Amino acid sequence: MKILLFCENKYAVDIVRPLQAEADRQGGHEVLWYVHQKKIPVFPLKDEVRWTHSMQEAYDFHPDAVFAPGNIVPYYLSGVKCSIFHGYAAEKRDQFHIRNYFDIYMTQGRYFTEEFLKLQKKYRDFEVLETGWTRQDWIASHRHDFDQEREELLKRHQCERIVLYAPTFSPRLTSLPKIKEALVKLVDEKRVLLLIKLHPLTRQEWVEEYRQLAASHQNIVFEDDFAVSKYMLMADAMVSDTSSTIYEMLLLDKPVITVDTVSQDPYWKDIHDVGLLTAAYDEVFNSQMLTEKRQWIIANYDPYTDGHCAERMLQGVAEYIKRHGVPAKRKLNLWRKYVSIKTFGRVK
Rank of each mutant, 00 (worst) to 15 (best):
L164G: 04
Y165P: 03
A166P: 02
A166K: 06
P167V: 00
P167K: 11
P167I: 13
P167F: 12
T168N: 06
R172H: 10
L176W: 01
P177S: 14
K180V: 06
E181Q: 15
A182E: 03
A182H: 02
K185A: 09
L186A: 07
L186R: 01
V187K: 14
V187W: 08
D188H: 07
D188Q: 13
K190C: 05
R191A: 15
R191Y: 15
V192M: 06
V192D: 03
L193D: 14
L193K: 10
I196E: 04
I196M: 08
P200Y: 01
P200I: 00
P200V: 00
L201Q: 08
T202S: 10
T202I: 06
Q204V: 13
Q204S: 09
Q204I: 10
V207I: 04
E208F: 04
E209W: 11
Y210L: 01
R211N: 14
L213F: 13
L213H: 03
A214I: 01
A215K: 15
A215P: 03
Q218N: 04
Q218R: 15
I220A: 03
I220Y: 11
I220V: 15
V221Q: 11
E223Y: 03
D224I: 01
L233W: 12
L233H: 09
L233G: 07
A237Y: 01
M238Y: 08
M238N: 01
M238P: 04
V239P: 00
T242N: 05
S244V: 05
S244A: 11
